[in-house]
Amino acid sequence: MAKECSSTSCSKESCEGCPSKQPKSMLEEMNSQSNVKHVIGIVSGKGGVGKSFVTASLANRMAQKGYKVGILDADITGPSIPKMYGVKGPAQAVDAGIYPIEAKNGIKVMSVNLLLPREDEPVIWRGPILANMVKQFWTDVIWGDLDYLFVDMPPGTGDVPLTVFQSLPVEGIVIVSSPQDLVKMIVRKAYKMAQMMKINVLGVVENYSYLVCPDCGKHISVFGESHIDEIVAELGTEVLGKMPINPLYAEAADKGAFHAVENEYLDKAVEKIVG
């Protein structure tokens, strides 16, 4: 047992093992009726790169493999997961907490849109309130038994991503990027934040990599040539997938039928997550 410091006899050596000097964990306790085995964050340094699309695609692939999966929509001011799956609130609240709503493929979803009177109501909250809401999605939501909980992060490196990293037992993150040269800097920011928070970076997924010509099958680099390979080489991580622009995926999301999407371009990412 570590020896307590006394005010009369305190030195550098005697304080080495003092409990008061040890860093305290900021992890929040999950709901007493939840049993979540693994938490994976999906992050991006900027918006518009398809982070929610990657989150939902990964969740689908894991569910198709027989895993029990949930999605925590931490993008409080720009939630899109419920719309993609066609799920609507209000979520049921009981004394023990709040039940997530299940999509047609069994994926459990919790998002602020499932708590609002109308899904198009804006969330005009300051950072600390947004961060507390994300904590409550962990402490107050009855997730039940889950093998994997995917956290769809808001873009950037602000309050909410910081809260997720500090408050939830995130095992690793997947960084989402796009081919533009600007994204190299953005990916580095997300990677460095994870390093600073001592979170494992599983790898990088590139979205909008190319468009397949419907007539000749040629790959067209709509957003310019990819830089993802050189980025991951610099950072010492790996590419987990390069996804083309697929209008059918967008159509499924718009119709609330994303549960039917099978995105095989992320199979390497799934293998990495499962380990």
Rank of each mutant, 00 (worst) to 15 (best):
E264H: 15
W138F: 15
S32L: 10
V204D: 03
E264Q: 14
V170M: 09
D181P: 06
K184I: 10
I186M: 12
I142W: 08
E230S: 12
A74I: 09
A190T: 03
I220Q: 07
I142N: 06
D159R: 13
M197G: 09
N60D: 14
R188A: 13
G224D: 08
A91V: 00
F258V: 07
S57A: 14
N31L: 09
D75M: 02
Y208D: 01
M26E: 15
A260W: 01
K184S: 13
S20K: 13
E102P: 10
S25A: 11
D215L: 02
V261R: 08
G70R: 09
G144A: 11
Y191K: 05
A74K: 07
N246H: 10
V69E: 07
P122A: 03
T139M: 12
Q64S: 14
G47R: 10
V261L: 07
K21E: 13
K272R: 15
G47A: 12
E238T: 12
M153N: 10
V205E: 01
I124V: 15
P161Q: 08
P82T: 00
L182M: 15
N105S: 04
I173W: 02
G97F: 11
S14F: 00
S7R: 01
M185W: 06
V69H: 10
K83S: 13
Y210S: 10
S9E: 01
G70A: 13
P19S: 07
G86P: 10
A2Y: 00
P169L: 02
Q22F: 09
Q33R: 10
L235H: 06
K68G: 09
Y85L: 11
L115V: 00
P117V: 00
L58F: 09
M62R: 02
E225H: 02
A59E: 02
S178F: 00
V43T: 14
G217N: 04
D152A: 08
G275M: 04
L162F: 02
V49Q: 06
V270D: 06
Q136K: 12
K83N: 10
T237A: 05
G241E: 03
N60Q: 14
T139E: 14
K198A: 13
